[in-house]
Structures are given as structure tokens and as C-alpha cells.
Design a protein around this nucleic acid. Sequence first.
DNA 1: CTCGATATAGTCGATCCTGACTAATCGGCT
DNA 2: AGCCGATTAGTCAGGATCGACTATATCGAG
Lengths: 212, 212
Amino acid sequence: MAKHRKVANPLALAVLAGLLREPMHPYELGRRLLESGKNRHIRYNRGSLYMVVEQLRKAGFVTERETVRDTQRPERTVYAITDEGRAELRDWMRESVALPRAEYPQLGVALSLLGALEPAEAAGLLDHRSEALATEADEVRAHVEDAVDHGVAWVLLAEEEYRLTLLDAERRFVARLAKSLRHPDHVSVSQELLRPVPERTRQGPDRADRAG
Amino acid sequence: MAKHRKVANPLALAVLAGLLREPMHPYELGRRLLESGKNRHIRYNRGSLYMVVEQLRKAGFVTERETVRDTQRPERTVYAITDEGRAELRDWMRESVALPRAEYPQLGVALSLLGALEPAEAAGLLDHRSEALATEADEVRAHVEDAVDHGVAWVLLAEEEYRLTLLDAERRFVARLAKSLRHPDHVSVSQELLRPVPERTRQGPDRADRAG
DNA sequence: CTCGATATAGTCGATCCTGACTAATCGGCT
DNA sequence: AGCCGATTAGTCAGGATCGACTATATCGAG
């Protein structure tokens, strides 16, 4: 299933999507990425950008359209997406949306080695994380609210809402885990996670639990 | 805050934790990682393992203890953790647990470029993902239940429960998003995510400076 | 006893990624 | 006119990563 794409870096997906709108030079692509704040969802840095564009060119997904030098600044090479590029973009997008693939969130690593810490200390650290997550979530929320107020269609904010979902879920989990670590008798987080999901169409249990 | 660790690969955290229990040769570390299924939470492959061990040695976090050749198989070099290594492990664990750091889940990328797909098609793809996520979650659940039945302490399953939490959250989000894409009039996922903000223990910097 | 399959243990090169660097130009200030 | 800092545009060396490779040992089937 896992296709070996000729260019695997997710940044390439953004490049193809960008060039779908209109031909551009790499720096401009990067500028728009930063401007639109998409860099919070795609790992971006300049070097990778130029590399990825070059890779896409070699793979035939984009072509060098022209090299202009209107001012006396360094030349800007403008790239355009090809038909193969369009095909790749569609295929890749479909795959990214439809198929989840292995990810390695950093907390997973830490939790899997949690034994190396005293339960009491771990609980304290988890509290700290919980606070930090709440703060981050507040920021995203503010950002989304602001955008909505300015008339941005909600569909365009899907990625922010996704981020929010994950942040909230992690915060709740972390808070519960901290609590459990303090009362090892009360049996676990599992109880909550294992019971209440018999049916898969069941809609969300919206409860905001925040223990003192 | 974001420390430049001498060895940054998360695999190194697992290596240190492994050597904390007892001195070992790299291959054995790898074997245990696979055996205990921790490789689902830590990106593992052989080459990286040996590299990481070598890096840790150079950094003084582990030392070469002995090189044995009991059978006629290739030599096995046994490593032991040093005091510096122990310190690094504790510090690193504390940081990983307490401080969330930027992550780039693949779906975030896709969502931020969702405009490149027809809403109807996107909805279908999201349904597909939702199914896949449910299946994955079922597998993890089965695994956890099994472990619990075999008397494994729940604390040792924190990472599985975390995974479960994320899978469930994503599945719910994805399902709702698909629904919204089919009824663009019904206003969005936001409604649900923005309202139920539990008032947090006031202390964070509540600022939303984003004048437009 | 021999063949193939699997497990053990480690190495290597090609590719990829990143942060730091160059280098010119523009805008503003004095 | 001269200078400072920000912006524009791109390059590059040094690491990090991954898959593929080597080579021996053990085990089971025939």
C-alpha cells in the first residue's frame, strides 16, 4: 500500500498545490507558505524547498518555465506544474486523506519509557504539559475565531480544527493520566477508553473534564 | 527552551532507557524493542540504532564495556550507560513529558490543501479514513485488553492508550468533517470545537493580538 | 547429512535534510 | 550621499536516515 513516491517530502505536496494555482519561483512559494501560516502544518525550511523543487523537476512533475531577472536581484527561476505533476498531486492527496499512516508523536516515546520516572514526578510533569497544551489550544482557537469573524470559510480552517481536536484530546488524556498516577488504586485510564466505544457511528462524547 | 541535545534521535532515548536496566549489545536492544512492540511508538531501523549508539558513545552517555565472542558469530560489543547518560535520560524524559513540541501529522498537510479536491470526493475519502482508523483502534484495543487480561499493569500501557486517544479523536473529527462537507449549510465543525471551551484555571497569557 | 530458511550481528552508500552562509537590493534615516 | 537593517533569492557542507547488503550460525525437513 505504502507507495514509494519519487518525492516523499510532504513539502512537495504543498509545492504542487501552489503551482496548481499559477507558475511561480521557489522563493515565492515559500513566502506564501509562511504568509498563510501553513508552515505550522508543514515542516518548512528554505533549503528543503529548493531541494524538493529540484526533485520534482527531475521526476518530471514540474518544469522550468523561465528565468527572469527584472530587477538586478538574483535570478528567479519560475516553475510550472506538468500534467504528470497534476496527476501525482491528485493521487497523493487522495492517499493522504484516505489512508492513515504510521506516525510517531513524541509523547508516545516518552510514555513508552515512563517507567524511568517516579510516578509522582511524572504526574507533575504531565500537569505542566496539560497547561501548555491548553495555552496552545487557546491560541489556535483565537486564531480560528478571528478568521471566522473575518469571513473565512470554515472549510479552509479544517487544518486548524484538526489541530485543535488533537490538542484537546491530548490534554484530556494527559490530565487523566496524571490523576491516575496519583491514585493508582482507581483503575486506570483504560476503563474509560475501553468501555464506551462499542458502536462506531457513535458521535462524540463531548465532555470537558478538568479536575482540580 | 528547545535544547540542542547532542543526540537528538528519539531512538537514543529508548537506548538509554534500555541500558538503564542492564548493559547490552545494540542488537539485543533492537531485539527487545521489536519484541515489546515499542517500535510502533519509536521509529526503528537497524542502521539508525548502531549510529545512535555510536553517537551516544562519542557524547559520553554510554561506554563500551566489553567485546565478547562466545559463539563463532560476529562480535557483540556490550555497552553500559554512564552517569552522564543517566542524567541525560532523566533530563530528556522530563522535557519530553512536560513540554509539547511542534509536530506535523500528515493529515494536517492534506487538510491544509484540501481545496485541491472536490468536496464530494474529499468526503468519500474521509469516510474511508474513518473506517481505517476504526480498524486500527480496534486492533490497539484488542492488544490492550489482552495485555490487561494477562495482568500487565495499566501504567505500562499508557502509550497504547495515548495512541487510542489520538485515533479516536481523529476518527470523530474526520467523520464530522465528512458530514460537514456533504451539508455545507450546517455550519461547520467549528461550532462544536469553539463553544465548549472549559474555562481554564486562569493563569495563562490570554492574548489574542492579531489585529487585521 | 544436506539443503534451505530463519536468526544473529553489523556495515555501507545513496539520498535526504537542515541550519548556516553568501550576496545583492531596497527602504528609510540622517 | 552614506549607512543600517530588512527583504529577496539561492547555495552548500555536514549530518541523519534508510534500505540493501554481508556473513555466519542454528534449526527443521527430507
